[in-house]
Design a protein around this nucleic acid. Structure first.
Length: 457
RNA sequence: GGCGACGUGGCCGAGUGGUUAGGCAAGGGUCUGCAAAACCCUGUACCCGGGUUCGAUUCCCGGCGUCGCCUCCA
C-alpha cells in the first residue's frame, strides 16, 4: 500500500508504527458557523481512508477533534449577543447532522479542545522549560527559530517567510515568525487558569496535545485540508517535536479544496455553498460521490451539473443492485483484487469506482443472459460498502386513499400486484394509472421478464 | 515575489513510454403494450515549443494558463 506523504512530497510505502494497527488524527472543524461543501469533503475523504484501512484488516484508531475555542467563535458570540457555548452548540449540531447525512462514520474519539486544556498547558510548560517557548505579557509564544526543522512539511524557508510575517498590535512576540501557544485573557472572553495567568490556548497547540493524548508520539497518519499545511500543521510538528524530541506523525495526508467559480470556498469570505442546503437539494450520497470521484488531493469544482452527474451515476449503481435479491455468494475475487489495487495506490477512489462500474456492467450483462451474478453482487456489496455508497432501503408508506382508488391494500406490493393483474388483462389504462399514481408518491415501477420491480424515487 | 499542485475526448475524471480506464451526455440498434432499466455499437483525447527515445499524452527543459499556500480557513 502506497500513500502520498506531504512530508517529503513523495509516494511512499505505508508501514504502520505497529503491525496491524493504524493511529490517525484528522483536523476537524472549528465549530463557529454552518458547514459548507468544503468541510464535507474533508470528512468524507478521511472517512473512506478509515473505512478502507479497517476493511483491509487494520485496527484503526481515528481521532477527529472539534475546535470549540477560537477568535471567531468569540466574535460571533459577541456580535449576536449570545454565549460562546451557544455558538458552539449550534454549529456542532449542524456539522454532526451534515456528516451523518453524508454517511460519515463517527471517529473513534472526537475530542473537544476545551476539554484538554491541562494537556495543552503541560505541553506548553515543557516547551518553555526546554527553551522553545517564552512567556511575555501573559501570552506564551513558540520560538520558531529554536526549532531547526521548522518548514520541513510545507517546504518553507524561514528567511523567505519573514516578508509575510508580522506582529499584530498587542502581541509580545520577539520574532515576527513566532506564534502564540497561549493567549492572555481579554475582558469577557472564555479563559482558563494557567501558570501564565488566565487565558486560552492558541489554535495549533490543541492538535499537538490531543493527538499525543490519544495516539502517542509517532502515530501513523495525520490528515486535514491542504490549506492547513501551513502554518497549522507545520506548527503542530514544531510544538510536538520540539517538546518531545520524537517524531510527531509519520504520514501527512491532505485533501484538495472544493472550488466555486474557480476559487476555493472559504468561510472567511462567504464564498461558500451551504452543506446542509446541498444535502437537501441532492441525494446526500450523490454529494458523497461527487467528493469521491475526484482523487482526494486534487481540487474539485462545484457545479450543479457535477452533482446531477453524480446522481445519475449513483442511480446506475443502485439499479444494478436492485436486480439482485439477497446475496450469499463469495465475492468475486477479481473485482476485489482490482478494487484493492486501485485503493492501495494512494486511495485512487476514481480508479476503484471504474472497477465498480465495470463490475456492474458485467453483472447486468449476466443478468440479461440469465446467468449467476452472486459473486459480482457480493463483491459489489463489499466495495460499495467500503465507499459508503450503498443505497439505503427505507420503509415506504403510501396513503390509503391511493390504494382505495384501485381497490387494494395500502402497500406498494399490493398495488404493484393489482397492476400486474391489469397488465395480464391487457388493461393498459388501469396499469398505467397505477404506475402514475405510484410515481406521484415517489415510487418507480419497472417491468421485467420476471415480473415488476419497484423502488423509491 | 517565494513554495507547491495541476492542464486528458461535449462535460467530469483515472492512468500509462508502444495494446479499451470509468461516469454523464449524444447518436444508432436489441428488448419492450407503453415506459423504465439493461445490453450491443459509435468518439482514437491527452496545453504549446524543444529534447531524450525505435517510439511520449506518459521522462527532461522552456513557455503559456489555472489553482492553492505564504493571514483565519477542510
Amino acid at each position: 500500500m502506497y500513500l502520498f506523504n506531504t512530508l517529503g512530497r513523495r509516494r511512499v510505502p505505508f508501514d504502520p508504527r505497529e503491525p496491524g494497527k493504524v493511529a490517525m488524527y484528522v483536523c476537524g472543524p472549528t465549530v463557529q458557523a454552518a458547514p459548507h461543501l468544503g468541510h464535507g469533503r474533508a470528512a468524507v475523504v478521511f472517512d473512506v481512508v478509515a473505512r478502507y484501512l479497517r476493511w483491509r484488516g487494520y485496527e484503526v484508531t481515528y481521532v477527529r477533534n472539534v475546535t470549540d475555542v477560537d477568535d471567531k467563535i468569540i466574535a460571533t458570540a459577541l456580535a449576536e449577543g449570545v454565549s460562546t457555548d451557544e455558538v458552539v452548540a449550534r454549529s456542532y449540531a449542524a456539522f454532526s447532522e451534515a456528516f451523518a447525512r453524508l454517511r460519515v462514520e463517527p471517529p473513534t474519539v472526537e475530542p473537544w479542545a476545551t476539554h484538554h486544556i491541562p494537556e495543552m498547558i503541560e505541553l506548553i510548560e515543557r516547551l518553555v522549560e526546554t527553551g522553545h517557548a517564552y512567556a511575555a505579557g501573559g501570552d506564551v509564544y513558540f520560538s520558531v527559530r529554536s526549532f531547526a526543522d521548522y518548514g520541513k512539511l510545507s517546504g518553507r524557508d524561514l528567511d523567505e517567510l519573514l516578508s509575510g510575517a508580522r506582529i499584530a498590535p498587542g502581541d509580545h512576540k520577539r520574532d515576527p515568525l513566532d506564534f502564540a501557544l497561549w493567549k492572555a485573557a481579554k475582558e469577557g472572553e472564555p479563559s482558563w487558569p494557567s501558570p501564565w495567568g488566565p487565558g486560552r490556548p492558541g489554535w495549533h497547540i490543541e492538535c499537538s496535545a490531543m493527538a499525543r493524548r490519544y495516539l502517542g508520539d509517532g502515530f501513523d497518519i495525520h490528515g486535514g485540508g491542504q490549506d492547513l499545511v501551513f502554518p497549522h500543521h507545520e506548527n503542530e510538528i514544531a510544538q510536538a517535536e520540539a517538546a518531545t524530541g520524537k517524531p510527531f506523525a509519520r504520514y501527512w495526508l491532505h485533501n484538495g479544496m472544493v472550488n466555486l467559480g474557480g476559487e476555493k470556498m472559504a468561510k472567511s469570505t462567504g464564498h461558500v455553498v451551504d452543506l446542509l442546503g446541498a444535502l437537501d437539494r441532492w441525494d446526500p450520497l450523490a454529494v458523497r460521490l461527487f467528493y469521491l470521484r475526484t482523487h482526494y488531493r486534487k481540487p474539485i469544482e462545484f457545479t450543479e451539473e457535477a452533482l446531477a452527474d453524480a446522481e445519475a451515476s449513483l442511480r446506475r449503481l443502485w439499479a444494478f443492485r436492485r436486480r439482485v435479491d439477497a446475496v450469499e455468494a463469495t465475492p468475486d475475487r477479481e473485482v476485489l483484487d482490482r478494487f484493492i489495487a486501485a485503493m492501495d495506490d494512494d486511495f485512487d477512489v476514481a480508479g476503484a469506482l471504474a472497477v465498480v462500474f465495470e463490475a456492474v456492467r458485467e453483472g447486468n450483462r449476466r443478468l440479461d443472459a440469465g446467468e449467476d451474478v452472486g459473486g459480482i453482487a457480493a463483491a459489489y456489496d463489499e466495495v460499495v460498502g467500503v465507499l459508503g455508497l450503498a443505497e439505503e432501503v427505507a420503509a415506504v408508506t403510501i396513503p390509503d386513499t391511493l390504494a382505495a382508488r384501485f381497490g387494494t391494500e395500502a402497500t406498494v406490493d399490493a398495488l404493484v400486484a393489482r397492476r400486474e393483474e391489469a397488465r395480464r388483462a391487457r388493461d393498459w389504462a388501469t396499469a398505467d394509472a397505477i404506475r402514475d399514481a405510484l410515481a406521484e408518491v415517489g415510487i418507480v415501477v419497472e417491468d421485467t421478464p420476471h415480473g415488476a420491480r419497484w423502488h423509491r424515487r
